[in-house]
Computed example of a mutant assay.
Amino acid sequence: MKPLLTVNNVKLTIDERPILRGVNLVVNEGEIHAILGPNGAGKSTLASLIMGINELKSPDEGEIIFKDKLLNGLEIYERAKLGVTLAWQEPARFEGITVEEYLKLSGRNNPELDVVKCLELVGLDCTYLSRFVDDTLSGGERKRVELASILAMRPKLAVLDEPDSGIDFASMEDIANMIKTMRENGTTVLMITHREEIAEIADRATLMCDGRVVQTGNPKEIGEKFKTMCVKCEVRNPELVGGK
């Protein structure tokens, strides 16, 4: 498969604290790739660097390359024009904008846009079209609307930061199906999570801990390693591995 996003030896220190310690990652075109890891592993910081948000336009060292284009230093809108978008862990609020207006704005370059279908795919019905994207929606509802906006947009790469955040366990199937639909519609998905259940829908998964990539491979194998690594951690407690 052809690489779409390549992260080469990315290092980042914030307030004298190393956050990313030489991260290497390849996301192939047309795949769902999960990044799994505990809180504080550096997953969301990596997502911010890919999108260029939170004043993180460039790593201290290393490169982030999207379709042979260096992303280092680019503004958010420049990355968006290339086809990169990000769904926030905490979905945004837009006072005075209805869900229908939000989805139509997101999908303005999608000639096949069907806003009702986008809502249905994230488990919401057409009654939400007239709702406002503000605090009248619960956090879980806003999360679904934001994911529907990405379906409407059809970017080349969607970075989903904790797409299961604020979503109850019974709704996980909706989210999983929506992510699969993104791929079917031609969007490559980089999904960041700390739940191995959602990571299992990926084609490949990468385990991160303490700002490092521990392993990339089969999602089920990575999920099993994630479940046990906090007890017997090869990164933070190497002396516990192999009887050392």
Results as ranks from 00 to 15, higher is better:
1 M>S: 11
1 M>Q: 12
2 K>W: 01
3 P>W: 04
4 L>E: 09
4 L>V: 15
4 L>K: 06
5 L>P: 05
7 V>A: 06
10 V>I: 06
10 V>P: 03
15 D>R: 12
19 I>N: 03
22 G>N: 01
22 G>L: 03
22 G>D: 08
27 V>C: 10
28 N>R: 13
29 E>N: 10
32 I>W: 12
36 L>H: 11
36 L>W: 03
37 G>M: 08
39 N>E: 15
42 G>D: 06
42 G>F: 08
44 S>V: 08
44 S>Y: 04
46 L>R: 10
46 L>Q: 01
47 A>M: 08
49 L>I: 00
49 L>C: 03
49 L>S: 08
51 M>Q: 13
55 E>L: 12
56 L>H: 01
59 P>N: 01
59 P>S: 04
64 I>T: 05
65 I>Y: 07
69 K>V: 14
69 K>Y: 12
72 N>G: 02
72 N>Y: 03
73 G>C: 12
76 I>F: 05
76 I>M: 04
76 I>C: 02
81 K>F: 04
81 K>R: 12
82 L>H: 06
83 G>N: 11
83 G>T: 09
83 G>H: 13
85 T>F: 09
86 L>I: 13
90 E>F: 14
93 R>P: 01
93 R>F: 09
93 R>N: 13
94 F>R: 03
99 V>G: 06
99 V>S: 01
100 E>R: 12
101 E>D: 15
101 E>K: 14
101 E>V: 01
102 Y>Q: 02
102 Y>R: 04
106 S>V: 06
108 R>E: 11
108 R>L: 12
111 P>M: 00
114 D>V: 09
114 D>G: 01
116 V>I: 15
116 V>L: 03
117 K>R: 15
117 K>V: 01
123 G>S: 04
127 T>N: 14
129 L>I: 08
130 S>G: 09
131 R>H: 15
134 D>L: 05
137 L>N: 06
140 G>E: 08
142 R>C: 03
145 V>W: 02
147 L>Q: 07
150 I>N: 03
150 I>V: 15
151 L>G: 06
152 A>I: 03
153 M>C: 09
154 R>S: 06
161 D>L: 14
164 D>W: 08
164 D>K: 15
168 D>V: 04
169 F>Y: 10
169 F>E: 15
176 A>R: 15
177 N>D: 13
178 M>K: 00
178 M>T: 05
181 T>Q: 13
181 T>L: 09
183 R>D: 04
184 E>W: 07
186 G>V: 06
186 G>N: 11
187 T>I: 04
187 T>K: 05
189 V>G: 06
190 L>T: 07
190 L>C: 02
192 I>L: 14
192 I>E: 10
193 T>N: 12
194 H>Y: 02
195 R>L: 14
195 R>I: 01
196 E>Y: 08
196 E>P: 14
207 L>N: 11
208 M>L: 14
208 M>T: 09
211 G>W: 10
212 R>A: 01
213 V>W: 10
213 V>K: 04
215 Q>P: 03
215 Q>I: 12
216 T>I: 09
217 G>M: 11
219 P>F: 07
220 K>Q: 15
221 E>A: 12
223 G>R: 05
224 E>I: 10
226 F>N: 02
230 C>I: 13
236 R>F: 07
236 R>Q: 13
236 R>I: 09
237 N>Y: 15
238 P>C: 11
239 E>S: 11
240 L>N: 10
242 G>V: 04
243 G>A: 10
243 G>N: 08
243 G>K: 10
